[in-house]
Computed example of a mutant assay.
Amino acid sequence: MIRYGIVGCGHIAKKHVDAIAAVDDAQLVAVCDTNPERLQAFATDGVQGYTDLADMLKNPDIDAVCICTPSGLHADLTIQAAEAGKHVVVEKPMALTLEDADRMIDACEKNGVLMAVVHPNRFRPAIRELRKKMDAGAFGKIGHANATVRWNRNQAYYDQAPWRGTKAMDGGVLMNQAIHNLDLLLWMMGEVDEVQSYQATRIRNIEAEDTSVSVVRFKNGALGVIEAAVTIYPRNLEESLSIFGEKGTAVIGGPTANWIKTWKFEDEPEEVSKETIARIEEDPFGIPGHQCIIQDMTEAIQTGRKPIVSGEEGRRALSLVIACQLAAETGQPVKMDTLERKQKKRG
């Protein structure tokens, strides 16, 4: 039995509670929040509550902690947990800077603990089918790919908590909303060579950007377009991932990227394609993504292997967001290799 504690009892914590409850070899034993009122709702049924993380980390019954706080706090809390010998499941984005991400990875390695980053969309049934096609080479030579997030986060959403929409704690539409889709884009397409980006705060009264459009060139030569906005009226319109190759076209979309919208492959009979689409339509959501993350982390701790979405995997999506932000700030293309070299010098 792997015993978990949760740090931060906000909105996302409920998904972690449900995920831990759904995994046979996982158990929630503690929760921590500096707000006693928020804490009270979670510290029930034998789950011990703490208002101080240091106190919770002294609990020898805790094997792993889930970091569910505002994004800007992820790094320091992860390091604190790692230094206490606890494995870490950290919500996305794992950090807001590459420096912090590297500190987190280093702390976990030095203390012999595992870290998983919550990118649960990899476990969606349609996305798994798409990955199978990528692994099989069914697209042939890929021309380009699109990652699109056209969502609504109204002003009331940002006004409900002072950290939302800030650069220090939220990070903007790419960092907070679109990073899941960027993780999928990289998972399918591989490493990025260069990125150019434009970002703006057009409609929401926030510090960070609410709209972003980027063009990327992958190291395999394919091109890509990233579009992300939280300004769509009046509600979420689309989250999609599209891949276009010489022998195949696939679009995973809907308000969230759970449905197959287009599925055409030269080497696959149309009847087979229709069967795949119909199977996804029957259960587009599958097992909840957070449950998959906790299940995978539980098994990783038990066996000593790395989680599927490790700290290094989480860092890849963060690095792309940082590159887009830098390109927008400077008005110049950013080479990923150059960005990483500068990061190593700073490290």
Rank of each mutant, 00 (worst) to 15 (best):
E83Y: 04
L184V: 08
R103V: 01
G137K: 08
R124M: 08
T78H: 07
W187L: 03
L185K: 04
L182H: 05
A116P: 11
R122H: 15
D63F: 01
N59H: 08
K132F: 09
H180Y: 13
W163I: 11
Q160C: 07
S197H: 07
R103H: 10
A145D: 03
D170F: 10
D106N: 11
V88N: 11
F139Y: 14
E109Y: 07
V113K: 11
G190H: 02
G137A: 05
W187Q: 06
D159F: 04
D100Y: 04
K133P: 06
L96N: 07
G143E: 07
A138M: 09
R150V: 09
L185M: 12
R164S: 05
G137P: 06
L77E: 15
A161F: 14
A95M: 01
A147P: 04
V173K: 08
E91N: 08
R124H: 08
A136T: 06
E91G: 04
M56Q: 04
P125F: 03
T69K: 03
R122V: 09
R153Q: 13
A147Q: 12
D183K: 02
Q80R: 14
V117Y: 02
L77R: 10
A54H: 14
V173F: 03
V113C: 13
A64S: 09
W151G: 14
G190D: 10
L184P: 13
K132H: 13
Q196V: 04
V88Y: 05
C108L: 07
M188K: 03
Q196R: 10
L73K: 12
L185W: 01
I62T: 02
D159W: 03
L96G: 05
R150D: 14
Q196S: 12
M175N: 14
C66A: 14
K133T: 05
E99G: 15
T148K: 07
A156M: 11
D135H: 04
D193V: 01
Y158T: 08
E191K: 09
L130Y: 08
N59C: 09
G137Q: 02
K110M: 09
V149A: 09
R131C: 00
S197W: 06
L57S: 00
T78N: 15
G112H: 11
V113A: 10
D170M: 11
W187G: 07
T97L: 03
A116W: 10
T148R: 06
V173D: 12
R122N: 07
P70H: 11
P120A: 01
V88C: 10
A168N: 10
A107M: 02
A168M: 10
A101M: 05
P162N: 09
G137D: 02
P93L: 01
W187A: 04
